[in-house]
Design a protein around this nucleic acid. Structure first.
Length: 425
RNA sequence: GGAGAGAUGGCAGAGUGGUUGAAUGCGGCGGUCUUGAAAACCGUUAAGGAUGCAAGUCCUUCCGGGGUUCGAAUCCCUGUCUCUCCGCCA
């Protein structure tokens, strides 16, 4: 969330940012409640100060044998009034908090203003040698390939759980596992991350901390009996590792990489977009999360994107990098790059990674701070995360790009030592 | 799942109704001493909020929430978590 003081002092900038993100502007409403809240605090604090004085006075008066009944009666009235003020204060603060939770992060000044995905800016693209987007002979899509080679079974996945829960079989399952292990090892060995293996179910505070709740609550699975949420991304448990902590400045930057299954309800999205791997309720993802000092976060964002790109270059998968415009930026992000991989059968780009700088938006919600060694004061860290990468969309690109004329799949070279085989037929 | 114990500052650990934001020890920081360091000694060492140009002043906070009271770290209720024992279990 944003700092209420910042909103108070820069209402116009906040309104502009909210508008550019296509979010509802409730800034004036918020400021009005903030003003009422502060008025009550001033009044209540005066009364509490009086009560504290009396608390010190009463035992002394008793000791010297004075009659305290008058003070007691007065304090009774004061305490009742304080109780009333505190109660309305609590209500206002809840209201304020709720409004604040729905104000998105503001886009960074380097983010292009735009309405929708149409306005995203392509930053760069990369093709392996001898690659052309016009190659049309590879016509089987990943669903047909999966069925023909008996490596993916979407129908049985649907029987077991429901649509959108893919079942990997045989070499398909091995390939998936190889991909996850390859990506983890690559980031650990080449990019300086530490490995984490997080819980897949988290509590409400964690979901709030990273910003999935309250705005996206409808898209989250929710286990009511235990008040737990299956994670939509490892970003949630990993970022929350330091919730309510103060980190030593010398420990920054902290860089974690971890695998998790990801669960998304994807409420209301059906139709052709949802076939096969294109939109699923459960998928696998290797996630990178960074905790950094504020002044370094934009450099760290560029490195983060580069780390994800390295995986695709090693796999020799064609991709492009998009800088998202304000209108396409997610609620919590200040700046975000998407990486899309090429699907020859779909004849289009598929989002396989999203790398974002949240600045201190998540840190403020989750109360993640570091101690500034110069000032000795705690400050909010900046958090970033990026997929490195999601396997589902990536698997589409791998299967389709690596298919032979006979409909077999060559295993990408870097994965062969993980799979133990080099062809799926 | 059953029974019991506990949660206090960076850490350890006192504190069972009244100047307790909290003894004491350790750690950290500053200083004295020293050629330097150690030791010793002295001082200092929380976070959040309101207000103010600032210095400052005031308020809140002893796991979370509610209650009793003029007054709660301290008493009552409740939630969460941790530990011990029993049961179950990969």
């Amino acid at each position: 969330m944003l700092d209420i003081k910042f909103i108070r002092e820069n209402p116009e900038a906040v309104k502009q940012g909210v508008e550019n993100k296509n979010e509802k502007d409730r800034v004036d409403e918020l400021l009005e409640i903030d003003q009422r809240r502060r008025d009550i605090i001033i009044h209540a604090d005066e009364l509490k100060s009086r009560r504290n004085q009396a608390s010190a006075q009463i035992p002394q008066m008793k000791k010297s044998g004075q009659d305290v009944s008058g003070v007691l009666a007065e304090m009774k009235r004061v305490s009742d009034e304080i109780a009333g003020l505190d109660s309305s204060l609590r209500n206002l603060e809840t209201e304020l908090e709720n409004l604040l939770m729905y104000i998105p992060n503001l886009p960074h000044s380097s983010v292009p203003v735009g309405k929708s995905a149409e306005d995203n800016v392509e930053v760069r693209k990369w093709y392996p040698d001898n690659f052309s987007l016009d190659e049309k002979e590879k016509m089987l899509d990943h669903i047909e390939l999966g069925k023909k080679l008996r490596i993916l079974d979407f129908e049985r996945g649907a029987k077991i759980s429901g649509s959108g829960f893919p079942l990997y079989i045989g070499r398909g399952a091995t390939l998936e596992r190889a991909l996850i292990n390859f990506m983890l090892d690559y980031h650990l060995q080449n990019h300086g991350y530490s490995e984490v293996f997080p819980p897949f179910l988290v509590n409400r505070d964690s979901m709030k901390g990273t910003g999935q709740i309250p705005k996206m609550e409808e898209d989250m699975y929710h286990i009511e009996k235990d008040e737990l949420f299956p994670i939509p991304t490892a970003e949630v448990p990993i970022t929350n590792i330091y919730r309510n902590d103060i980190i030593n400045e010398s420990e920054l930057p902290i860089k974690y990489v971890g695998y998790s299954a990801c669960f998304r309800r994807e409420a209301g999205s059906y139709g052709k977009e949802s076939k096969g791997f294109l939109r699923v309720h459960q998928f696998n993802k290797v996630e990178m999360v960074k905790f950094v000092k504020p002044e370094t976060s934009y450099d760290e964002l560029e490195k983060l994107v580069g780390d994800a790109e390295d995986i695709l270059r090693a796999l020799k998968i064609p991709y492009r990098v998009l800088l998202l415009c304000t209108g396409d930026l997610s609620f919590s992000a200040a700046k975000c790059y998407d990486i899309e991989t090429w699907s020859p059968a779909e004849n289009r780009w598929l989002e396989a990674s999203s790398c974002s700088n949240f600045e201190n938006f998540q840190a403020r919600r989750a109360n993640i701070r570091f101690r500034n060694e110069a000032t000795k004061k705690p400050e909010f860290v900046h958090t970033l995360n990026g997929s490195g990468l999601a396997t589902s969309r990536l698997m589409v690109s791998i299967l389709e790009n690596y298919q032979t004329a006979e409909g077999k799949i060559i295993v990408p070279e870097v994965l062969q030592k993980y799979t133990g085989f080099n062809i799926i037929e």
